[in-house]
Amino acid sequence: MKTDEWKSRYGFLLAAIGSSVGLGNIWRFPYIAYENGGGVFLIIYFFALLTAGIPILILEFSLGHKFKGSAPLTFARINKKLEWLGWWQVLISLIISIYYSAVIAWAIAYFVFSFDLQWGVNTIDFFLHDFLGITESPLTLGSLRINVLFSIFIVWLITYFILNSGIKKGIEVANKFLMPLLFVTMIIIMFRSIFLPGSYIGLNFLFTPDFSKILDVSAWVDAYGQVFFSLSVAFAIMITYSSYLPKKSDIINNAFITGFMDACFALISAIAIFSIVGFMTYNAGGEVPKNLQGVFLAFATIPKAINQMPFMPSLIGALFFLTVISAGITSEISITEAVVSSIINKLHRPRKEIVLIYCIFGFIVSILFATGGGLFILDIVDHFVNNYGIVCTGLVEVAALSWFFDLNILKDHANNISDFKINNIWNILIKFVTPIILLCILTLNIYKDIRIPYGGYSVKALTYLGWSTALLIFILSFLISKIKWYDKEILKGLK
């Protein structure tokens, strides 16, 4: 089967940056920076970007480019015994692609609501009860919200049309439109926010350095965790995207551009979000607003701030949710492509057929997130998939490649086609620094979850929805790797 390729380097870069810049840049990074020492955290963050984020990006770009396949095919080509690792990453992407579609769907609905500020004065009540019809626990699904369901359908329809058109005409064209749109809307929101009264209060929260945090282990773990989650590494995406690169591609430079551009977007959104936080604090006479991260930041705190804006609040609201939609869609298509390409590789079926079947399947499962229990389920699944799934696959990936594969093969491959060269420091970062950090993150996550059940949910709900999901995808990855490739020859010839 002929493999599609990126039309230009610019197209690949936009797609890779589009995949990295997601909802985490908007609603996770600003709060983590604020929580962990402001300006000091940013320095730790850049250190983490250079010592873990970009080295892993170089690793994954080299893997995809050298072995020319989706994650399972790439790992199977390295060693048949490693194929399950690729499927583990793909199954994580599968789960994320499903719940991510629900969040984008909420943003689409809120984009429409913003024209007449339909969320009213009590934005939390509107979001939880009027919009989501939330139930009392994750194990009670409640009623189906038709407007949410309709928005989810739109997300899958968009995903279908983009992926169905292939790499060049679908993903590349979509990113060439969505990424500039995302950049422009973010810049407009940032400048509007900076000129709001009291914005400086928020910027002081965000940037004032707290030097005591430099010795705080949790600030370092959060910085590395943020870099790791944000760059879309360890869940099959970057391996898949780089497999579509033409033979002559500057891998190392591409990795640096992707890493730094992701940081640029994170900083722009942090400035915008915290200027808005400052504005709200100023209006409330010095009281800092609650809910400064996650879905509540986007769907309750920001709408509340938009209500208070002095000039054209509807326009700013529409622009904000357009930003969330663009950031979400560019990530969603990359996550879905990681799954679709793996199935295409394994079964040797036409792209159009696999994309159609997967999008129908994705939509059907997403219905779960249009119920009253959807937000709880999303919260639990997201916590376990991110904190255990991605961290574990990342850890196994760097450990397996470092200890059972010669990293110099990848280093030489990257150096041969790149302008900027990497040396043995890269080997040390991949072989020692990254596994140690991931192990620290994993240990800390386990410790936190054992000490206090996540989010105050019942142990039963966490076991059924969280631990079981994490365990199930791990077992399934082994089972899927046992299915035969349509042609065994596909595993040969590229070592």
């Binding site: 380097r9 402001g38 300006g39 000091v40 940013l42 320095i43 850049f46 400086y200 910027l203 002081n204 965000l206 940037f207 004032t208 350095p209 500057d250 430079n253 591409n254 640096f256 551009i257 890493g259 730094f260 551009m261 940081a263 640029c264 994170a266 900083l267 400035i271 302008d419 900027f420």
Partner: peptide, 30 residues
């Protein structure tokens, strides 16, 4: 905005945008 916050903001923006622009220019020159 206090001075230390302003300095940290400028440093962060210079590192992020400086890094991105440096590598983009490097790619364009090739």
């Amino acid at each position: 905005m206090n001075t230390s916050a302003l300095i940290m903001m400028i440093i962060s923006l210079v590192i992020a945008f400086g890094g991105a622009i440096y590598f983009i220019l490097k790619a364009l020159r090739k």
